[in-house]
Write a protein that binds this DNA or RNA. Structure first.
Length: 569
RNA sequence: CGGGGAGUGGCGCAGUUUGGUUUAGCGCGCAGCGUUCGGGACGCUGAGGUCGUGGGUUCGAAUCCCACCUCCCCGACCA
């Protein structure tokens, strides 16, 4: 491609709305432009990257024997109602009406559609296992789109769905996909970790997220450097460090009620009473399978809801709404406390070892100081329910855990029969018995791979693409467009490399050298060939590697083998 | 949805506090001409803006008032 003939709009300054590097560079390098909040146009350079990623995914998926399909973006309300997600998915599911006032959902994910296909087409165990996938535009009306393509409302996803006869086969498929995902992310040049994850609105029992390690990641993960245990903090297990808690020797002080007008949050209360969050106990009212229960947790800790759900053997746990809180505590939100509560109270182990705690007084604008278990209130159960903290140890090998931020680029789920059951996707087994298909689903965010790659690979001058997903592999730069000899050499180089099937960009724009160098760095093409005076006088070709700034000067005749060998790197 | 910030040529900004020398500026970019040409050159000339939208106040509004829209940031079931 000749740059003089195409659209390569680079910017010296990033628009002020872009806050993180990948977003800034994607705009500056001319990969994309914003159309509306969370909705972007891919320009030629950006779309090439997407297609590169797409092809890597496609190749790896095909290797597993999965088949590519293309499901519709629009799907009718009735189908979503069968699975119950027309309700459950909430406003994140975009909906439109056709001219007859029939409602459709714009696909945020396609479990319903694929299960509908399976129930129509798959009848026998002989047709299983089956894995289908697609690469397609998805819509999610994100509560807050941000960071460019990192959290967009219209984005691109590879979603795959597996159908098996039994759990054992699902396990095989799951492992195969897990491995395939590693292959894909490896080929994309990403540094990532696979972590145990929460299943969220997709549902199912087991899931893993593939997290690209980056400071700007929206997720927090925790992992063990020794044994490899890794999980999203929202579900991480841990072995409690023995040093947390333990104040049994402290004397109990007399209970006091203090006025705390309008002080609701931990920060407000601790700021007002001049104490630390760890002196405070939060009283959270949960609805556990519909029944209100009070959870006591230290002010600086959080509840691991998954753990809680498991320990209570509950189907559904939800924080109570304001009305319920007012009914249960007879105070407004922000002033709940355990003293005088009539409902069941569950305390975290760390709370159990606290003395002279501060809590809400179950009375508006009042808190209690020096409350103590047994003396002032009773606890029904003591459980380990707080979420992981930096002091905790690995649940498997008791090594200190490492915290990191991650960008979720892939997610694999064991769905089981969640969708096949409600949508009645069944098959007949060897004995002629009807059974629901056992499903798995596997997603990859293409745009996120692109953004995450930039987060991991850039410098102050711009993007540094890995060869595998670079929009072009080589850029030939003509230093002085007025010099006919330079143009001649550049054209020759360009044509010969193009003939070799190397993806090449020729910067033949009528710009000064400096501007071209800056653009080349910004766009991050891995290999840059500079045609200037050296090429004329010395009969040498200069190749610069974007990644490490190394310059190779080689004879013209060695150019193609050299480029080939550099591409191997 | 709650809180905060912002909308002025393609991008980045000034001007708004105190309404009137502003025919609304500046840098970058863009067009033309000339000089230049290995890390974002320089000179001259020029194009491009209903100052987010709609109302209002006023002799007069980018500037004051009201409403709405859009965008960004923080938070969003942790009391």
């Amino acid at each position: 491609m000749r740059m003089s003939k195409g659209l390569f709009p680079t910017l010296k300054e990033a628009p002020k709305e872009a806050k993180i590097v990948s977003h800034k560079l994607m705009i500056r390098a001319g990969l994309m432009r914003k159309l509306a909040s969370g909705i972007y146009t891919y320009l030629p350079l950006g779309y090439r990257v997407i297609r590169k990623i797409e092809n890597i995914i496609r190749e790896e998926m095909n290797k597993t024997g999965a088949q590519e399909v293309l499901l519709p973006t629009l799907s009718p309300q009735e189908l979503w109602e069968e699975s119950g997600r027309w309700e459950v998915y909430g406003p994140e599911l975009m909906r439109i009406k056709d001219r007859h006032n029939r409602l459709f959902g714009l696909g945020p994910t396609h479990e319903e559609v694929i299960t509908d296909l399976a129930r129509r087409e798959v009848k026998s165990y002989r047709q299983l296992p089956l894995t289908l996938y697609q690469i397609q535009t998805k819509f999610r009306d994100e509560i807050r789109p941000r960071f460019g393509m990192m959290r967009a409302r219209e984005f691109h996803m590879k979603d795959a769905y597996s159908f098996d006869r039994n759990e054992k086969d699902l396990e095989k498929n799951y492992k195969k996909m897990y491995q395939t995902y590693q292959n894909i992310f490896d080929r994309c040049g990403l540094k990532y970790k696979a972590v145990e994850a929460d299943t969220g609105p997709i549902g199912g029992d087991v899931s893993h997220e593939f997290m690209v390690l980056a400071k700007t990641g929206e997720d927090q993960i925790v992992y063990c450097k020794k044994c490899g245990y890794a999980a999203n903090v929202n579900r991480a297990e841990y072995h409690r460090s023995p040093v947390t808690g333990h104040q049994s020797s402290v004397k109990e002080k007399p209970l006091k009620k203090v006025k705390t007008p309008g002080m609701k949050s931990v920060e407000e209360v601790t700021g007002f009473l001049k104490c630390k969050p760890k002196d405070l106990v939060k009283t959270l009212i949960y609805k556990v399978d519909g029944k209100p229960i009070a959870i006591l947790i230290r002010g600086d800790h959080g509840v691991n809801e998954r753990r809680l759900e498991k320990l209570l053997k509950a189907k559904e746990i939800l924080l109570a709404d304001e009305k319920t809180i007012e009914k249960v505590t007879s105070a407004s939100l922000g002033f709940s406390g355990p003293v005088g509560l009539k409902i069941k109270i569950i305390a975290d182990s760390d709370v159990a070892s606290m003395k002279n705690m501060i809590s809400g007084a179950n009375e508006k604008d009042y808190h209690l100081i020096n409350i103590n278990i047994d003396r002032d209130f009773k606890v029904d159960r003591i459980l380990d329910i707080r979420s992981v903290i930096p002091e905790d140890l690995c649940p498997k090998c008791k090594t200190k855990l490492t915290f990191s931020r991650g960008i979720e680029v892939g997610h694999v789920f064991k769905l089981g029969t969640k969708y096949s059951q409600v949508l009645k996707a069944t098959f007949l087994d060897e004995k002629g018995k009807e059974k629901p298909m056992i499903m798995g689903c596997y997603g990859i965010g293409l745009d996120r791979i692109m953004a995450a790659s930039i987060e991991q690979n850039h410098d102050e001058n711009g993007i540094i693409w890995p060869l595998s997903i670079a929009p072009y592999q080589v850029l030939v730069l003509i230093v002085n467009n007025q010099d006919k000899r330079q143009i001649k050499i550049a054209e020759k180089v360009y044509n010969s490399l193009e003939k070799e099937g190397i993806e090449i960009l020729l910067d033949d724009r009528d710009l000064r050298a400096g501007a071209k160098f800056k653009d080349a760095d910004l766009m991050g093409i891995p290999l840059r060939i500079t045609i200037g005076n050296k090429a004329i006088k010395g009969n040498k070709i200069e190749i610069k590697i974007r990644k490490n700034n190394k310059v190779h000067e080689i004879d013209k005749k060695d150019l193609i083998p050299k480029i080939r060998s550099l591409r191997e790197m």
